[in-house]
Design a protein around this nucleic acid. Structure first.
Length: 265
DNA sequence: ATGACGGAAGTTTTCCGA
């Protein structure tokens, strides 16, 4: 059983790549971020042709998230309940996987705010959003022992997730305040599935995002900011978590790569 | 100090992302 997350940086532009990737990687659930389109433009028919149901939460120009899945989900929620937000950043739902022993998994797909710069109004919004997410996920975990929180977090855990830790120290995605919020999510009883596996010492550092500029992908100048966190009940089921760099090598790629979680059935 | 690159809106330039 496989779940994946991918910030596509405009589904309008990236739809052919998403369809190609899904055909080659028929995951059970795919969480998309940065659709940059309203719901009336969402290409549900194209996904239906590949036998995927779609739940979307779109917005003009910015943000927008969706959940594609083999099975029809229940209890779909859009954005963080009780947190007033103009932006479409969160979609969650409950899934069962009839071909496996895994049932009633609560899956939350989130596009965390960027935050722009410490001290800015956008950074303050990011902090408030993170606090609201934490409170909500705490409650969700109380109701759903099997929970996955995945998406574009726009936060690195530590130096291992950063190509230039010294140069980026204290910068956006790398501040102590952001990382405290990320660790607070971990402290609710979630694990970073990618870090359940030791990275080979001789291998390059692993990232999920590379700037379009300065040949950053070719030079592996990136950040690991797309994460799949799983609740403790799911940890024993985690078989692998890998970042698929192949789509980043396409013509006109997204700046993010998909992250894929495999669970034992 | 700024821009690089890419997307969107919408019109020749701006905002935003990370």
């Amino acid at each position: 059983m496989k779940l994946a997350t991918w910030n596509v940086n405009s589904l309008g532009v990236r739809l052919p790549q998403v369809l190609d990737w899904l055909a080659a990687n028929p995951v059970d659930v795919l969480a998309l971020q940065e659709l940059k389109m309203t719901d009336d433009k969402f290409p549900a028919h194209a996904f239906l042709e590949l036998d995927y149901h779609a739940q979307c939460f779109g917005q003009k120009t910015y943000n927008g998230v969706a959940l594609l899945s083999r099975t029809q989900p229940a209890a779909v929620v859009r954005n963080i309940p009780g947190f007033a937000d103009d932006m479409a950043r969160v979609i969650g739902a409950t899934f069962s996987f009839p071909d496996t022993a895994v049932a009633d998994v609560r899956i939350i797909n989130a596009y965390f705010p960027n935050g722009q710069e410490p001290g800015s109004a956008k950074f303050a919004y990011k902090m408030a959003w993170l606090a609201a997410l934490h409170q909500w996920v705490r409650g969700e975990l109380g109701m759903h022992s099997r929970l996955v929180l995945m998406g574009d977090y726009n936060i690195t855990f530590d130096d291992l997730d950063v190509w230039d830790p010294e140069g980026m120290r204290g910068q956006i995605h790398c501040t102590e305040e952001e990382r405290q919020h990320l660790r607070a999510l971990i402290d609710l009883g979630l694990s970073d599935s990618f870090r359940l596996f030791a990275q080979a010492p001789q291998s390059d550092k692993s990232y999920s995002w590379w700037d379009y500029r300065n040949f950053a992908f070719k030079r592996n100048h990136g950040l690991r900011i797309d994460h799949i966190l799983v609740s403790q009940a799911l940890v024993p089921l985690v078989r692998s978590c890998v970042i698929d760099k192949a789509p980043r090598k396409n013509e006109r790629p997204s700046d993010h790569a998909p992250v894929v979680l495999e669970l034992y059935p």
